[in-house]
Design a protein around this nucleic acid. Sequence first.
DNA 1: CTAAACTTTCAGTAATTATTGAAAGTTTGT
DNA 2: ACAAACTTTCAATAATTACTGAAAGTTTAG
Lengths: 169, 169
Amino acid sequence: MEMEYQEAKDKFISTWGSLGTLWGINKAMAQIQSLLFISTKPLSMEEIMKELKISRGNTSMNLRQLMDWGIVTKELIPGERKEFFTTEKDVQELARHIAKERSRREIKPVIKILKDVSSIKDDGTEKTKELIKQTKALHDLAETADAMMNKIVNQEQNWITKSLLKLIK
Amino acid sequence: MEMEYQEAKDKFISTWGSLGTLWGINKAMAQIQSLLFISTKPLSMEEIMKELKISRGNTSMNLRQLMDWGIVTKELIPGERKEFFTTEKDVQELARHIAKERSRREIKPVIKILKDVSSIKDDGTEKTKELIKQTKALHDLAETADAMMNKIVNQEQNWITKSLLKLIK
DNA sequence: CTAAACTTTCAGTAATTATTGAAAGTTTGT
DNA sequence: ACAAACTTTCAATAATTACTGAAAGTTTAG
């Protein structure tokens, strides 16, 4: 398949946008990030609005969320009154931020609840035993998965990823 | 904190249910799965509906989806006319199914598109070069992450998980 | 074959989530 | 201090997604 620049760009933005759900963010947020990710220079709110055909308010709110996630930053360009925005351009670094935030916002709280639930008093009934057993298993799995993800993604270089891959291939 | 069985059960089901989005399924689906996961016996549609206070139609549709995902199965109980349902009880096995399905349904198609986009003809312009470079980086990252996830989760025992954890600690 | 017991489908509706746009707020230059 | 240039907020609205329930479909027993 051969695509023109514009077609490829649109495809990338819409695909990455719809994938947003996979890493827990909404469409507009993901699309703004995509746009910045392939831009050769920082973009202003005006440019983002126009490019993605979304409102000023929407752009403002989603940019803020992206900054909260730590993957977009304000860039002040000397002589310009407007604010400009860039995203983390290094995929490894991007993955690190996303994994860290998801862990903090979603996974850790669930692990906490699993721990609480699996720690209820065993009253000897079969159903209580089952609840404890199953939530404990889930707790251990979630904790292991979370720890692995963070460790893997936190290496400065990706040497460990490469060596791990070899190990398990 | 000390909870009663019923409180702990409700908390588990609602927490796990709201976490559904994290692994790409909806609330009712996740709640049905949770209920089965801590049940000591197969449950009928009637029992699921009553327990979760959801309609017959909703229950039917979500059970089907869970079966499509391969994590819930029909259990025919001799002498009973009704159908009964159980979920995979082993967390390792559960994680395997979920990872496999997510990879197949969501990650693989995105990798394919990233590949297409990063393979457009380089017309020499800066913006085209940037699009190619960044989507290629994303493609490689996605492919590596997908491969790792599948490898890790596909081990019959979790010996490898344990040894990997040691390695990267 | 018929009826009872059960499951599935799907059009309508409800609930949730995202988006707009205009008013309010802020910052900067003169 | 004022006004221009810009950003943020948020109530109203739109779009999306999930849920209901009754009708249609299926299976089983007699």
